[in-house]
């Protein structure tokens, strides 16, 4: 794949991505309009004073008295400069709120993601190589269990076992409050707090990857080119690594791309269960408090993330599979 071709592909796809994001922003704008009452009445309601003059002032202040298309243009301009609005509830700009919470979420979802992919693929390969034998059945049953169990329940059980009974791991938060650790000790502390939530979040996907990888390995193992490799005298271990696994990973990558898109938005439940100070919690709190500005900010952030990871997946696919034309 030539560098020029890659750049052209990136340029074309970026234009498409911008169009998608633009559509999302317009959709958000419509969404705000659909909510009962305008922001002025919300603020007025929250501050407890709602005489018509004050409302009028607020509307002028926020530009709510201007024509709709002008409002849309202003909204678009704000979004383009990453001005996501102001949370009156938290008395902070939404962008700053999100930026503060983003690292915690990425740490959690990223760890869960890696855990799911590596663990899932490893289990899937092991099962496929021992198809029909006890190890295969054990892995299949385990994967099915994780797949079928609700996430919050897995979380609660893990807390019960490792925090309550064994007292090995902390059950909530991101670090020990008041310990004032720094450097490696802090990292270790965060690591300990990370284990249970990332396991909880990752196990479901781990199960999916295990099933996907197993099925895919078995399918590829039956294909003609594997027989060709065998006829060539390639040793069994190398057949699995160089011929079967590489081809079997393609559907796994497709699914990983979908999961990666949810890295920001997909952890609301787990963050709430484990009191993890991330975006998910932020969204959840905003929802309860009817903090539309924050909620839409999270929505926007999540949407952009999905678009970006789709792009990355496509690129990765083109690198892994030479048949996919980046054009």
């Amino acid at each position: 794949m030539g560098a020029a071709k890659l750049l052209r592909f990136l340029a074309a796809r970026s234009v498409k991505a911008v169009i998608v994001v633009l559509a999302i922003v317009v959709f958000q704008f419509v969404l705000i309009r659909l909510a009962p009452g305008d922001p002025a009445s919300v603020i007025a309601g929250q501050s407890g004073a709602a005489d018509p003059l004050f409302m009028q002032q607020l509307r002028e202040q926020f530009g709510l008295d201007r024509p709709m298309h002008e409002q849309l243009l202003i909204y678009l301009r704000d979004m383009a400069t990453l001005d996501l609005g102001f949370s009156h509830r938290q008395q902070q700009p939404v962008a700053r709120l999100i930026l503060e919470r983003l690292p915690a979420t990425l740490l959690l979802t990223g760890t869960a993601f890696l855990l799911a992919i590596t663990g899932g693929v490893a289990l899937g390969v092991m099962a496929a190589r021992r198809v029909g034998r006890p190890a295969d059945s054990a892995i299949t049953v385990l994967a099915l269990t994780f797949y079928a169990t609700p996430i919050f329940w897995v979380g609660l059980i893990l807390v019960l076992i490792f925090s309550v009974w064994l007292e090995w791991l902390p059950s909530f938060g991101m670090f020990t409050v008041g310990a004032e650790l720094s450097g490696w000790a802090h990292a270790l502390d965060v690591g300990k707090h990370l284990i249970l939530p990332s396991l909880t979040l990752g196990l479901f996907f781990l199960a999916i990857y295990a099933r996907l990888a197993r099925a895919s390995m078995l399918e590829v193992a039956d294909q003609d080119f594997v027989r060709t490799a065998r006829a060539k005298g390639v040793p069994e271990g190398r057949i699995v690594r160089a011929h079967v696994l590489r081809n079997a990973l393609l559907p796994v990558i497709t699914f990983a791309g979908i999961q990666a898109g949810q890295l920001v938005g997909g952890s609301i439940l787990v963050e709430t269960v484990f009191a993890w100070p991330g975006i998910g919690r932020l969204a959840f709190d905003a929802l309860l408090a009817r903090d539309y500005a924050t909620l839409l900010g999270v929505f926007f952030c999540t949407a952009v993330m999905v678009v970006v990871f789709n792009l990355i997946t496509d690129l990765l696919y083109a690198v892994v599979d030479p048949r996919v034309e980046v054009a």
Partner: peptide
């Protein structure tokens, strides 16, 4: 083998 289209590893 018979089927040249599938007998080589595509990757």
């Amino acid at each position: 083998f018979q089927e040249p289209m599938t007998a080589l590893n595509p990757l």
